[in-house]
Computed example of a mutant assay.
Amino acid sequence: MSELPDLMLLLVLLAVIGGWLKLSRAREQATQEARQLCRQHGLQLLDESVGLRSLKLRRARGQWFWERCYTFEVSIDGDDREPGKLWMSGRALTGLSLPTIQSHLPDLMAEHVPRTSQSGNVVPLRPRLNRDSSLH
C-alpha cells in the first residue's frame, strides 16, 4: 500500500524538476534575446543576466499560453543603470521595454551649454521661446 504514495511523491518531484529545467532554459534564451536587443539598440547589458519577474497565464486569439516577464538592467553611457523588461511566450518575444536616450537629454544638453564665468552652482538659463507671438 505504501508504493502508491511513494510513486505520487516521485511523480510530483519529477514534475517540479522538469518545470525548473524548462524555466532555466527559457531564462537562458531570454538572456540571449536581451543581449541581442541591447546590441541592436546600442545599450550595454549589465550583469549579463535577466531575472524572472512574473509568470502569467494569458489568452489571445482563443488560446491560453504562459507569458514570462524578465527584468534586467542596461547602461546607456556606462555610468548609469536603467531598467529594462522583456516578455516572452514560448520561444517568441512578445514585448520589450527599454530606456530611451531622451531620459538623458538634459544631461547631454548641459554639456553643450556654453559656460560663462560663474561661481558656485548657478546654472545659466536659456531664454524662453514664445509659443505664439500673436496672443501678446
Rank of each mutant, 00 (worst) to 15 (best):
D6A: 13
E82L: 15
L45M: 04
P114E: 06
L125D: 04
P5Q: 01
R59L: 07
L55A: 13
D80C: 09
R39A: 13
S133K: 11
G90A: 03
V113M: 00
N130L: 11
G78K: 11
L93T: 06
D107T: 06
A15N: 11
R27F: 02
Q63S: 10
P127N: 05
S133Y: 11
S75R: 06
N130D: 08
H104W: 09
Q102N: 11
L98Y: 06
P5L: 09
L57A: 13
S24C: 04
D80F: 06
V16A: 08
V123P: 00
L11R: 14
R39H: 03
H41E: 10
T100I: 03
C38D: 00
R39Y: 00
R27L: 03
V50A: 01
G51L: 07
Q44G: 03
A30R: 07
L46F: 03
P99R: 07
H41K: 12
R59S: 11
G120A: 04
F72I: 04
L93M: 10
W66H: 04
V113S: 01
E33V: 15
E111W: 10
E3G: 02
A26Y: 03
L21M: 08
V113L: 13
K22I: 07
Q36S: 12
L14D: 13
L10M: 12
S24M: 08
S134Y: 04
S117Q: 15
T116P: 01
M88Y: 01
Q63A: 12
M88S: 06
R68M: 10
D6Q: 14
L13E: 14
T31S: 01
G90R: 08
V123H: 04
R58H: 04
D107W: 00
G84E: 04
E73M: 03
T116R: 14
Q118I: 13
W20K: 13
V74E: 01
L98Q: 02
L108I: 11
K85L: 11
L52G: 07
V122T: 14
R59P: 01
P99D: 06
P106F: 08
H112T: 15
G18E: 03
E33H: 14
A26S: 14
L52M: 12
E73Y: 08
D6K: 13
P83Q: 09
R61Q: 15
F72G: 07
P106Q: 06
G120K: 08
Q63H: 12
E67G: 03
F72N: 02
L125Q: 13
R35V: 00
V122Y: 07
S24D: 12
V122E: 07
S54T: 12
V12H: 10
V50Q: 01
M1I: 05
P127Y: 01
S2K: 10
A30Q: 01
N130V: 14
L13A: 15
Q44W: 02
S117I: 15
S133Q: 11
T31W: 00
L52K: 07
V113Q: 00
G42H: 09
T71H: 12
E33I: 15
P5M: 02
L9N: 14
R126Q: 10
F72V: 08
F65A: 13
E3H: 10
L37G: 02
R126A: 08
D107Y: 03
Q36A: 15
S24V: 03
A26R: 15
R35F: 05
R126I: 09
S54V: 09
R35G: 02
T116K: 09
G18C: 06
E67R: 12
R81H: 05
S49P: 00
W87E: 00
L129S: 02
P83M: 10
